[in-house]
Each structure stands twice: as C-alpha cells, then as structure tokens.
Nucleic acid binder design. Sequence first.
RNA 1: GCCCCGUUCGUCUAGUGGCCUAGGACAUAGCCCUCUCAAGGCUAAAACACGGGUUCGAUUCCCGUACGGGGUACCA
Length: 480
Amino acid sequence: MPDPIRVRFAPSPTGYLHVGGARTALFNWLIARKLGGVFVLRIEDTDRERSTDESTRTILDGMTWLGLHWDEGPVHQADGLPRHQADARRLLESGRAYRCFCTPEELAAKREEMKHEYRYDGKCRAIPPAESDARAAAGEPHTVRFRVPDGVTQWDDIVHGETRFENASIDDFIILRTDGTPIYNMAVTSDDIDMRITHVIRGDDHIPNTPKQILLYQALGAPVPAFGHLPMILGGDGKKLSKRHGATAVGDYAQMGVLPEALFNFLALLGWNPGDEREVMEVDELVQAFSLERINKKSAVFDTEKLYWMNGRYLEKKPAEELFEIVAPLLVKKGLVTEAEVETRRDWLLHLLELLKTRARSVNEIPKLAQTYLVDEVEYDADSVAKQWKDPLTAERLGAVRAALQGLEPWTVEGIEGALRAAAEGLGVGFGKVAQPLRVALTGSAASPGIDHVVFLLGREGALRRIDRARERLAAATAV
RNA sequence: GCCCCGUUCGUCUAGUGGCCUAGGACAUAGCCCUCUCAAGGCUAAAACACGGGUUCGAUUCCCGUACGGGGUACCA
C-alpha cells in the first residue's frame, strides 16, 4: 500500500474566497477524495498587515458551504515562524544563503535607476562568512538571500508538462526580511516539507515561484513534490476575473441564489472534463471521474449564464423538502408567510415549490414566483390582460368556469382539470380558450404552472374570489 | 524590457497524425410537445490565430509571428 497522497489549499486571508481559489481548493479536494489522500487547509497569514480573522472565517465558511471539508487544519502559517527561521538559518549555515546588508533605500534607488532592467546585483554574495557574522553580531540590519546556483531548474508539471527555467534568470531572492520573518517562498516550502505535501496543485500564476521553491527543497535536502499548475479563471472580457466583473466571491453566488452543488459542478468543469459528454454530475460522480491528467492548460472565462443554467438543473433535481429549508426563510423575510405558516401550511408550500422549482434558475427567483399565490390582491400584467381578455366572451366563459368549480367534488387536481375541460366543451371552445383567460384572472399573468395546479393551490374560495374580481374588472371595462 | 505560460464555435469544451464533412454543452433562432411558461425532444447558424516546415497526409509534431495571460517586491 503506497503512502497516501497529501495535498493542500493555502489561501491568504486577505479577502473573501474567490471562485478561482475555490476551484483550486475543489481540484485538490477531488484528487484527495479520488485517491484516498489527505486534504490539508493552511491559512497563509504571514503578512500580518493584511490578514484578518474575518477573512479566515469567510474562507472557511465558503469552503464548508461548498462541501469542501479538510482533513487537517486549518493550520496557520504564522505559527510555523520558528521552523521557517530555523530552515533559513540552516541554509545560511550551509552557505546556500547569505546575509544581504543592502538597505531598502539602496535597492529602491537601484530599481529606480535601472527600471525594467533591474536585477539584484549580487553585491553581498561575496562577503566572506567571517565578515558577515561579525557585522550581524554587531547588530547591522540585514536580510537573508538565497544563493541561486548555476544551472537549470525544471520539473514535469502535471498540467503543463516539462517546464524549465534558467537559474540565471532567477535573482538571489530574499528568504528572511530585516525583521527576521520569512518571505512567501521560504514559508511555503518550509511548510510543505513539514506537512509532507506530495502534490502541489495551485494556480498557474505560481509558475514563476516554482523553480525558486524547488531550489529551496533541494537546498534543504527535502524530496521535491509533484507540481500541477491550474489555468486562471477570467472575466467575460478575457481579463483575470476581478471585482469589476461583478461577483467573484463564493459568498456572492450563495447570496444570489446559486446552490452549492451547482457551483461545485460548474467549477469542476472549468478547466477539466470527464472525457465523455457528461456535464451535470453529482459530487460522487465527479470524484469517480476526476483525474489530474485531464486538466486543461488554457485559461477559462467564467460564464455566469451557464452557471445559472446548471443551477436551474440542480433546482429541478433537488427534492422540494430540501429546497424548502432554503426557501422558507426567504418567504418569511419577504413577509409572504409567517413563521407559524411555514409549519401549518407546509404541505401546501411544498406543493407550490414542486411547481416552481423547474421554472427558476436561482433560489432567489422562487419567492417572486411564489408571491402571486400568497397575496390577496392579484397584480395584473397589462399585456397579458390585453391579449387574453380581448375576446368579448371572456366574462361569460369565466362565469361558466366559476359555475363548474363552485360545486366541484372532490377538490383534487385531477377533478379540477376534468371540470375545466368539461366547461370548455360545454362552451364549444378549445381548452386554451378557457385556460388562458382563467390563468390571467388567477395569476395576473399569461405564464404559470399548469392551470389545474394553480386552481387547486388557490383553493375553491381563493379561486372563486379571483374569478369574481376579474369579472368585475371586465364589467367595469365594458361599461366605460 | 526580461522570464514563463497559453491560443478549436460568442462562452465552456471533445480531439494525442488518417475515424474530422471537426463532436457535445451554454447562449441564439426555428420546429415539436402543450392550457401558457419552464423543462424535454428535434433542427439550424457558429471554431482549428497566422506563416513556414516535417509527413503520402496535419486541429494534432517542430520553428517563427501575432495576440492574450502571468511573473519580474524586505506581497502572497
């Protein structure tokens, strides 16, 4: 039995959980589940200035909402400080790193002067160890830089294949700041070694960091993990997805009525596919089909339109009972039902939900659709009224429908349909000639679920009242 | 500037040298189903960035160009 793979998701808590980050987390989670590995969550909070607990909580909430459960952590990178420093010191002692006494001002001036051509000049590289030790002992401020060796650093990227960097193109980068705290690449490498991470799966904006980290692994004598770099997620204009494209946070989509399973599925298909034509795939199915080898190289545009289509499919699939847990609070919030009615009218509401869930693309649309059935006064849509009530016989037909419903027993969906069809037959017209005007009378609109269900849900009393209101309106219009 | 990465319908993608008259999905349009809407079914329109090679044969392999993206910090 080989050792289980160990992967990690390592967000920095400086904001919300971005959909790009969520997808990275998702791919790590999927491969861990698929291969029976371990998924570790690490919060990269070494930048104390920008990191907040609020942000950490948002990220954790987002992952939980999506169903991305971590097996270990969250570990805070800041807690690893002593180890980061110890690793850096080992590098210093073995000569793989050296102290740099250049001041930030000197460096900034050089950068200003050289502009785009700027490279660290390696000025402190040649300082003899004895001198370096003495200056440090005397309290002279310094950073620690990694001594990039000659040669080439390459790796077989899981996504991109053979990738190589000339070491000459890599500056002697800082690993410890003047205040002794580690810089990103140092902290990450130290942590990934410590956590025994076997596969580093992250965004491809990290590709330039990878050779630096590999060099660090080698200098520390640690086994180098496998690397896989995921393509970026872009906005509709082909630019990196950012706030100006609108919603980019997982929480935003939750707010907008997207189901976690829909976002999960959608994100999984951004830069990966199962190799056949399946698209709507449940979590288990995705785990089953997932493989690192099928991840795409090309960045992908986040198409909200398709997300909502997929959300619609999940809304339809979701049992009304489950959806009810999400929708009921929204109905209460909108003042359409009371807390008590959520319980007392549960079956009725479930029936309504069953009818509406196929017709919505977002959870948030459901209260709007439900409103018609929960208020006393129907709002008439002018176009629907004009079109469906223009026949002068409308009032008469509604009267016939009213009569058919008044004494109908038993009051069932099937019974109602039968009564309405009989009424249409009695009037000598097609069913549509009865159903459409009635639909407008009952819902104010020319579009709704099946008329039999609508009548049933409104109840005999409610339906008759709305028919009467409609007939009054028609009478008034005729009189004028 | 330099260093990396990428480029198939508007969008997500299939495709690993002949199966490609380039397949599927979203969006769009039409038809069917039908009491309307939604869902569903069918159909249409829609793509291999460009130029050179290699090969009997390139969407597929190689090299350039163009375009896009990322990096180039005592940020992560």
